[in-house]
Amino acid sequence: MTTTYDPPPLTPVPAPRRRAALAVTGTVMTALGGLAAAAAAAVIVAFGSSGSLDSGSAEVSTSSAALVTDVAAMEDVDGIAAVTGSPTLRLSATSTGPSGVFVGVGPADAVTEYLSGVAFDRITDFSVDPLRLDVTGEPGVASAAPPGDQDFWVASATSQSVADLAWPVQDGDYQLVVMNADGSPGLTSTAQVRLELPNAFPVSLGVLIGGGVLATAGIALVVVAVTRSRRAATT
């Protein structure tokens, strides 16, 4: 004798729960799409179609031996480069003194050791377009050893006219320095800083479009859920 068992019938999901699921899914999609689109739009506004954020030219000066600023500690630059292209920091500075001007990027601990006991100005905040600096003075002796004689710089340039530095950003903690080429105090220069992300515009444009599509689809789901709820309430 053979006994057969019929599977129990599937219990349909109640309509109110389906409508609630549609509404929740649509809300999440709308929020995520909106956030992605907003972030992409902000990058496009900042970097433009050229993929560069430029400070514009401005005069900077210090009565001390150097202007020093921290470069944000970077991690997984290769991962960033895979999306935006290799990030490059460019700095140009004009020389107004007889010794010429020096610009350099070095490991933070090496720069700190080099300028230990030397008076310099540390840039604590800045704004771009136009370039404005907030600085805090560090006390010490007037002059530093010539920066070009140091071997720890990962990128540097010295010129009697315009020193141009291009540094492919690397993982780690670095500092950016502008000085007279002989390390003497009293620097006045016209400087310009630019950060380049070659693929920032096409990637951000794609995210902007994708975020807009996702948000639109989410809104559509919410509208469907609300419409069904209203129909159910009238029947």
Score class of each variant (00 low, 15 high):
Ser57Arg: 12
Ser55Thr: 02
Asp164Gly: 02
Ala163Val: 07
Leu115Tyr: 06
Thr25Tyr: 03
Asp182Lys: 09
Gly206Met: 11
Ser57Gln: 08
Ala181Tyr: 12
Ala191Asn: 10
Val154Met: 02
Gln150Asp: 01
Leu89Gln: 05
Gly206Asn: 13
Val101Ser: 11
Trp167Ile: 12
Ile80Asn: 00
Pro9Tyr: 11
Ile123Ala: 02
Ser156Asp: 09
Glu59His: 02
Thr94Ala: 15
Pro98Tyr: 01
Asp121Asn: 07
Thr4Trp: 15
Gly104Ile: 05
Asp171Ala: 05
Ala65Leu: 04
Gly140Asp: 08
Thr69Phe: 14
Asp173Ala: 14
Pro139Ile: 07
Ser63Trp: 07
Glu59Lys: 14
Asp70Ile: 04
Thr69Lys: 05
Leu91Ile: 15
Thr158Pro: 00
Gln160Ser: 13
Leu35Tyr: 07
Ala40Asp: 00
Pro107Phe: 12
Thr62Trp: 12
Pro7Met: 14
Leu165Arg: 05
Ile80Lys: 09
Pro107Lys: 10
Thr88Ile: 06
Leu187Trp: 12
Ala31Trp: 07
Val222Arg: 13
Val68Ser: 11
Ile44Tyr: 11
Arg90Phe: 01
Ala145Gln: 00
Ser116Ile: 01
Gly106Arg: 01
Val162Thr: 13
Asn199Thr: 02
Ala15Ile: 10
Glu75Thr: 03
Thr124Glu: 10
Val203Ser: 05
Ala23Asp: 03
Val60Leu: 13
Gly211Lys: 00
Val101Ile: 06
Ala36Ile: 03
Val177Pro: 12
Ala220Thr: 08
Leu53Gln: 11
Ser49Asn: 10
Gln170Lys: 13
Pro7Val: 15
Leu115Thr: 02
Phe120Arg: 04
Leu205Asn: 02
Ser161Phe: 11
Ile219Gln: 06
Ala58Leu: 06
Phe102Pro: 08
Ala144His: 03
Gly148Asn: 00
Ser184Asp: 05
Phe201Ile: 03
Ala145Lys: 03
Val105Gln: 05
Ala58Arg: 06
Asp164Val: 10
Ser161Val: 12
Asp173Thr: 08
Ser92Asn: 06
Ile209Gln: 00
Leu131Asp: 00
Phe201Cys: 08
Ser161Ala: 14
Val207Pro: 05
Ala157Ile: 10
Glu113Met: 06
Phe47Val: 04
Arg228Asn: 10
Phe47Glu: 03
Ser92Glu: 06
Gly211Tyr: 00
Leu89Arg: 00
Pro146Ala: 14
Pro12Ala: 13
Ala38Thr: 14
Met29Cys: 14
Arg132Phe: 09
